[in-house]
């Protein structure tokens, strides 16, 4: 029932006005230093302007987004597609922590941004009680644990878990009854596959590796992509030329971060029409993605300011805004 979200969309309309618009992002980029940038952010309700804990401020902003959405939506599982990546990130951390017998407390993502309690994942992996995990995570947790224990290769277990995460995201996207959620899932999986194919190609990985690392998605021919990546970079570009991601090739040639920026900008372009939709869950999903994009941009700008990067260099990295 689209009418189910009328109240929620009206609340989101109010919040959209508080998103950092392009001119604000520009003033952040142009700020002479991190102190000035933090002051601008404080004027817009971000942190206290002191800058003692930038990560904490960004975590607070993420928490604000999810708390706000939780107020509006009785069943938050509709947004699980956005959170699976965090669950599987926690699984990767738990597997490495358990295999290496070292505490990695700070790397776990907590709060409302996960669908599975990170402590449950840690306990289940530590005790090898994989049955305590959600059904979709059990097999991959077991396999990744076996892989890291037998080979000692943390990268292998990461690749296995990353692929499982992408498959879960793709499935959740297909099951979603909203175009924004479906499009997000497809774009997330496709962009991850393209990045993996490029990295693997540059590292001269074989086709068997690529077939294990790439997750299936509708907008890419995965066997062809794996074959091309195993051959050469040029073959990979030729294969991408025949896909809907042909426009991204020039960005891919520049750098992985330029491609990531292209993907983020594409996502913003696709979700922007939701600003005008008064019904459905689409505007809520778009708001979550817009906030995520905004937090990512602020992180990049502040990190650039802290590291004394030039204004031009920071501007190149900043994404387009939703509003």
């Amino acid at each position: 029932m689209p009418e189910e979200y009328i109240y929620a969309v009206a609340r989101v309309r109010g919040k959209e006005q508080k998103l950092l618009a392009a001119p604000v992002m520009d003033s952040l980029v142009s700020a002479p230093g991190v102190t000035e940038a933090l002051r601008i952010l404080a004027d817009h309700g971000w942190g206290d302007g002191e800058g003692t804990d930038i990560d904490g401020m960004l975590a607070d902003e993420r928490e604000k987004t999810w708390s706000f959405i939780a107020e509006l939506v009785p069943d938050m599982s509709v947004f699980d597609v956005f959170l699976y990546a965090n669950d599987y990130h926690n699984l990767k951390a738990a597997v490495k922590e358990s295999a290496r017998m070292e505490s990695r407390d700070s790397v776990f993502i907590r709060g409302k941004e996960t669908t599975v309690d990170p402590e449950l994942i840690r306990r289940a992996v530590k005790d090898r009680d994989f049955g305590a995990l959600p059904e979709e995570m059990q097999e991959i947790a077991r396999d990744a644990m076996d892989a890291i224990l037998h080979t000692g290769d943390g990268q292998l277990s990461d690749i296995m878990i990353d692929r499982a995460a992408l498959i879960r995201i793709a499935e959740a996207g297909k099951a979603a009854d909203n175009e924004i959620l479906r499009m997000y899932a497809e774009l997330t999986v496709a962009s991850a596959d393209i990045k993996t194919a490029i990295r693997a190609c540059l590292m001269k990985k074989d086709k068997a590796f690529l077939e294990k690392a790439l997750a299936p998605c509708d907008s890419l021919d995965i066997p062809a992509l794996a074959q091309a990546a195993a051959e050469s970079v040029d073959a990979l570009y030729e294969t991408l030329e025949r896909t809907v991601y042909a426009d991204a090739i020039s960005e891919i040639r520049k750098s992985p971060s330029a491609f990531e920026r292209w993907c983020d900008n594409l996502l913003m372009d696709k979700i922007r029409p939701e600003i005008h939709h008064p019904f459905t869950i689409g505007p809520l999903a778009a708001y979550i993605l817009a906030r995520d994009n905004e937090i990512k941009c602020v992180r990049m700008i502040l990190s650039g300011k802290v590291n004394d990067l030039s204004v031009e260099s920071i501007r190149e990295r900043v994404r387009e805004t939703y509003v």
């Binding site: 109240y7 969309v9 109010g14």
Partner: peptide, 14 residues
């Protein structure tokens, strides 16, 4: 009722 939901959403923040 539909318009009321939207109105309530706006009045919550404004």
């Amino acid at each position: 009722g539909m318009a009321g939901q939207a109105a309530a959403g706006v009045v919550t923040d404004q």
